[in-house]
Amino acid sequence: MAILVNASTRVLVQGITGYQGEFHTRRMLEFGTAVAAGVTPGKGGAEVAGVPVFDTVAEAVAATGANAACIFVPARAAKDAALEAIASRLDPVVIITEHIPVHDAIAVVAAARAAGVRVIGPNGPGVTSPGQCKIGIMPNHLFTPGPVGLVSRSGTLTYEIVAGLTAAGLGQSTALGLGGDPVVGLSFQEAIELFAADPQTRAIVMVGEIGGGAEEEAARYVGASVRKPVVGYIAGVTAPPGKRMGHAGAVISGTEGTAQAKMAAMAAAGITVVDLPSRVAEVVRRLL
């Protein structure tokens, strides 16, 4: 099973002829992802790593049956690209691009909701279902299929924890990065709802960070409705208020969004909260 992407996902890469787009298309193909098409306006007819390139999403979908999007286009063109993917009802639309203006993200998320399409990101590493499909930029070699579902706001920290799980013999159903921006599509709660309903997933790991209240919202949901074990980690205990810690969304505003508040809400909901990322694997093993 797994969530969001699986063996029947056919990926369309927007911005496939750019440096990042081409590099990660090759890595996705090596992973075994069915990359069906690429789109770069003005470069229709070209080919990248054997993948046909089209001028528009609509013609790429008509010609190849692509059903999900991966967006690498630069920030200033990303809103247009995402709306084009949404207009063709691709699902999910995974936005890797960093530095997209927040007003653009609001417009994209609203359009996706109206169309009934899920957006993942922006500013995330994508989504990986080991053995089936990877959309995005997570390093291929870390993953192995298994029972752990992982959802995170960060890329590298996800890799660190996945590597720890794999080393401990704990494979993953799906690993998913929600993105480090203040406004992103899929939320922690929505991801956990999917993991809760997925038969392959037997334990859930949520990796949060300072800023906003999405972890608290998800914790309330877990406390009320999730029977599978959930392990949580929050980065940014030492972050000062008002400073953006790398991610645009990682900022404590006034008294909102502290790591302490998130950990307290998670613990109150019955989530096992660990204080170091390396402890995730041993705790998951104990709970399974």
Binding site: T156, L157, I210, A235, A239, M245, G246, H247, P277
Partner: peptide, 27 residues
């Protein structure tokens, strides 16, 4: 990576140290 660096600061504090900065060299 922003998350990894935040977590690194926390680790330093966890072991009794005081981080001088946050610096993410980026992907």
């Amino acid at each position: 990576g922003a998350g990894l660096v935040m977590s690194t600061l926390d680790m330093i504090a966890h072991f009794g140290g005081r981080p001088a900065n946050f610096l993410d060299v980026g992907g």
